[in-house]
């Protein structure tokens, strides 16, 4: 039985790769070929779908918009969560447990509940259709997550580290940035990975809060699909390209993923 153990993960990976392969396969076909023939690989190999995306600004601006607000969100979430997570991991204070649970409830709030009020709220403060509006709205679920993960990592660092540093004459600020942050660097990396991931894949809020100037690539895809009929080849190429940023991020954090999951709470 032990001999065939590798079969389970292998079959699972094949199952995972099949739809992705199918998408890539479609992206190298012309739309006429997709609709008229069924084939396991492109009969008339074409890159025109990709050429269109890289030359048409409504398409490539979508990618730039998505990456912009995702990066904004990651930076804001981690920067705000660092001191908060430190406070939760080191101190007891009035209402700490309630505050922690309240933060978590926001991770649980269905975005569909918030879509309409968000639209009205961000319109009323003149932030509608800006990158920062999307970045701020994604804080709703990313900050609680960031605090949660970072708190796990920080709690794993013994308190003696803080105390020794103070005895050695470090001020709080110097201790925090020179000693503490480097110690939990892996945790910060994992946190950034998750913030990036959840902001990158979210569509409902991003779509509700943007019109043209900050429109995410995912929204460009759905709108194209509905306006110009089904240009399947183009859609497949755009979809394939959305996988790439994620794949790059995974490659960089691959060594941290499993460890990070174990150390932090997520």
């Amino acid at each position: 039985m032990k001999k065939y153990k590798w079969l389970v993960p292998t079959l699972y990976i094949i199952f995972l790769m099949l739809p992705i392969y199918w998408l890539i396969n479609m992206s190298f076909k012309t739309t006429t070929e997709i609709i008229n023939t069924y084939s396991l690989w492109p009969q008339k190999f074409t890159t025109e779908n990709y050429v269109k995306i890289f030359t048409d600004s409504t398409w490539y601006m979508g990618y730039i918009n998505s990456i912009t607000y995702t990066v904004f969100n990651t930076v804001i979430s981690v920067a705000a969560a660092l001191p908060a997570a430190y406070a939760f991991s080191r101190y007891k204070f009035l209402g700490d447990k309630h505050l922690f649970f309240w933060l978590l409830t926001n991770r649980m709030a269905p975005p569909a509940v918030f879509a309409l009020p968000f639209f009205q709220f961000y319109s009323s403060v003149n932030l509608f259709d800006t990158h920062i509006a999307v970045a701020l709205s994604h804080c709703l679920f990313n900050i609680p997550l960031a605090v949660w993960i970072l708190e796990g990592f920080m709690s794993a660092v013994p308190k003696e580290l803080d105390e020794t540093a103070y005895v050695d004459g470090y001020s709080f600020g110097r201790f925090f940035f020179k000693i503490f942050v480097p110690t939990i660097a892996a945790g910060i990396g994992i946190t950034m990975f998750f913030c990036f991931m959840f902001s990158w894949v979210e569509l409902l809020l991003a779509k509700t809060l943007t019109a043209t100037a900050a429109k995410p690539i995912a929204a460009t895809m759905t709108r194209t699909a509905s306006t110009s009929g089904y240009e399947l080849g183009l859609l497949a190429a755009a979809g394939t390209l959305t996988i790439i940023p994620g794949a790059i991020v995974i490659y960089f954090v691959k060594n941290y993923i499993a460890k990070g999951f174990a150390m932090g709470r997520v």
């Binding site: 990976i13 739809p19 894949v201």
Partner: peptide, 27 residues
């Protein structure tokens, strides 16, 4: 096998949700 499994298995988690829907639609 460890990094290969981890990278390939994490792939679906990082695909935008509407792309997941569209991908499964054509699949």
């Amino acid at each position: 096998g460890v990094p290969v499994c981890l990278i390939l298995m994490s792939m679906p988690l990082l695909i935008p949700w509407n792309v997941v829907g569209a991908m499964w639609n054509i699949f």
